[in-house]
Design a protein around this nucleic acid. Structure first.
Length: 591
RNA sequence: GGCCUCGUAGUUCAACGGAUAGAACAAAAGUUUCCUAAACUUUAGAUCCAAGUUCGAUUCUUGGCGAGGCUACCA
């Protein structure tokens, strides 16, 4: 049982005996640094039930705890705050438990564990991945890892947006001007190649619009009548009619894109258990709408379109099927969700999608609830803010996007430049250096993005944002590497358990943080926030550095002290590694 | 117009309704015969405004102001 629970039970019992009132719960918080103590009980909330003043009640509880709970060694009361000091032996015992547990911080899934599907990335196949996708991918992947660590079974998925007019645009441009170019002949990643033709289409389209305007057409007319657009629409019809030539081209070009994406995913260190393709799912959901119509969840308008009325929930009416009977985005998402539950028997889903779709997911979840699916209670939209540039909003057509691959290369290059400047890695082989630059550069990128609360927008300055000092991955990685170095030099037996030891202030500080790691993982899972893990790891590392700088292992007076400090260092490194693993960030053994 | 999110040091980020609002970068000062100075230790600096609820509000409610998003029979 956790110490909070033990103390909480004891307090409830004491208050009941003394004042005859039942406390609903006891509130704890870590004691602030300026006061003596480890754990603080807030007495104020109890005063509603127990008529006395906070100091008296605090003293009473404090005395009771010191006498009846072994782990409590002393206490003090400041205003309405009861500060409890826990005994060194309590901490030492807890530490032994941590060391015994090789999966510290993780809960292993059992038969009864919930299965959660995490969707992320979900790209279009007409252009390469960019910075916005990077935030999405990192968040989704990290969330999947955190949920796993919190004892859930996880299936990672992406839905690939592989059909529609936008794909036809790049196909058409390639057909017209591509000269049968391939990624091999062009020596270009497939997604880049296809993306270039999408841009090419847009240029032609714009110039045609200009021509038409000069011929006296209005802007609206020009946009709709541009020959190249009409041609693209025609192509979409052919695709929908299964025209063999069109489908073959579509398959060929999409495959180029998939190969390109795969490279980027591998470089980022993420993967998927299952891919869904929109070309397979875009017809799903129509029969669900029909059923819902029978049940009265939806209603039909005169023109034949089907709607749901959500005005009772403070939302609008929303269309779920067009007048011509074809599906809209919502129809598809309803169908896909149901399909996924069928495929994997999942209990819930996390959708990693930008916050411009907050409304869409609110409606989607509500519809699924109204349709009566039990799992609809466990849907979560992991919504995140835009990634802005100092120059303004990213627009793919205006070339202001930061390409994911370019960005990663730039980060690795920056890591290289800084390392060379400092001359830190001169002894390493070229291969080791390359691998380190990657670990550091990509770590910096991932950490920079994940440490921020997902729902906040990020201002990303490619040049200045990546700092190799302070609250950054390189700082943490460096500390990890240093600990490994310390441990290599320690030549005594650190497997021996320390039973009694007077804890140094710095040791205790570090130990306290180590103890809350499992809680932090659970919280991060519950709140869907990798940022909690990132900030926890930073706090841990900072505390370690202070510990390490102020009390030396080797100059410790007794063998016990040396051993204990080495153990603390080792455990810190383990937790950093585990925590960073949840963020998808590597740690180097040396740097 | 309606709905949603955000607003904290010069900058980038923290803070289950709790004590004197924490860090980092940038600025100023210091610490290396001692396990990696990419470190550590100091100093200075902030809750958009106004009411309300509360023993207590950065946090909750209401009203302003500011930034962004959504408000398609696109996905």
């Amino acid at each position: 049982m956790k110490i909070q629970e033990i103390i909480s039970e004891a307090i409830k019992k004491a208050v009941k005996n003394q004042f005859n009132s039942e406390l609903p719960r006891v509130e704890f918080q870590p004691t602030r640094k300026d006061f003596e103590g480890d754990l603080t009980v807030v007495v104020f909330p109890m005063l509603r039930l127990v008529k006395t003043n906070p100091v008296v009640l605090g003293e009473f509880i404090g005395n009771y705890l010191t006498e009846n709970v072994e782990a409590v060694s002393k206490f003090n009361v400041v205003q309405g705050f009861l500060n409890i000091v826990l005994s060194d032996s309590f901490y030492l015992k807890e530490f032994v438990q941590i060391r015994k547990n090789s999966d510290y911080g993780k809960i292993l899934p059992t038969e009864n564990s919930k299965t959660i599907m995490v969707e992320y990335s979900s790209p279009n196949t007409n252009k390469p991945l960019h910075l916005g996708h990077v935030r999405n991918i990192l968040l989704g992947f990290s969330m999947a890892e955190i949920l796993k660590a919190a004892g859930r079974k996880v299936i990672k998925t992406q839905i690939i947006n592989d059909r529609g007019i936008h794909i036809c645009k790049s196909m058409l441009a390639w057909k017209k001007w591509g000269n049968n170019e391939t990624p091999q002949t062009a020596n270009l990643k497939g997604d880049k190649l296809v993306g270039n033709y999408y841009v090419k289409f847009d240029q032609e389209y714009k110039s045609e619009i200009e021509d038409l305007k000069n011929q006296g057409k209005s802007v609206e007319e020009a946009k709709q009548q541009a020959p190249i657009l009409l041609e693209a629409k025609e192509m979409l019809l052919k695709w929908e009619a299964d025209d063999p030539e069109t489908v073959a081209l579509w398959q060929k070009m999409n495959q180029w894109v998939y190969d390109g994406f795969e490279e980027t995913y591998t470089e980022l260190g993420v993967d998927f258990d299952k891919n869904y393709y929109e070309s397979n799912t875009y017809l799903l959901g129509k029969n669900v709408v029909a059923n819902g119509l029978e049940k009265g969840v939806f209603y039909k308008k005169e023109d034949g379109s089907v709607w749901i009325d959500l005005t009772d929930e403070g939302l609008d009416e929303k269309i779920v099927l067009r007048a011509d009977g074809t599906a809209v985005y919502m129809t598809q998402d309803i169908g896909t969700a149901i399909q996924r539950v069928k495929d994997f028997h999942i209990d819930g889903m996390v959708y990693t999608v930008g916050n411009e779709q907050d409304y869409h997911f609110k409606v989607l979840f509500l519809i699924l609830k109204k349709l009566g699916f039990a799992w609809a209670e466990n849907l979560y939209h992991l919504s995140y803010g835009m990634v802005d540039l100092p120059s303004g909003k990213m627009k793919s057509r205006e070339g202001t996007v930061v390409d994911a691959d370019d960005l990663m290369h730039e980060m690795i290059q920056t890591a290289k430049n800084i390392s060379e400047e400092l001359g830190k890695l001169d002894e390493f082989s070229d291969q080791e250096k390359q691998s380190l630059y990657k670990t550091i550069g990509l770590g910096a990128l991932k950490y920079f993005i994940l440490k921020v609360d997902p729902k906040k927008r990020i201002l990303f300055n490619p040049k200045e944002s990546v700092d190799f000092q302070g609250n950054t991955a390189p700082f943490i990685q460096y500390t990890y590497a240093r600990i490994q170095s310390i441990l290599r030099k320690v030549n005594f037996d650190i497997s021996k358990e320390i039973e009694t030891h007077k804890l140094h202030e710095k040791e205790k500080e570090l130990l306290k943080i180590l103890l809350i790691f499992p809680e932090t993982v659970q919280q991060a899972a519950d709140q869907h926030s990798p940022a909690l893990i990132a900030n926890y790891i930073y706090e841990l590392v900072k505390t370690f550095n202070s510990f390490y700088q102020n009390i030396s292992i080797l100059s410790a007076e007794t063998q016990e002290e040396k051993t204990f400090r080495a153990q603390l260092s080792k455990e810190t490194a383990e937790v950093v590694k585990t925590g960073f693993g949840l963020l998808g960030i590597d740690v180097p053994e040396r740097m």
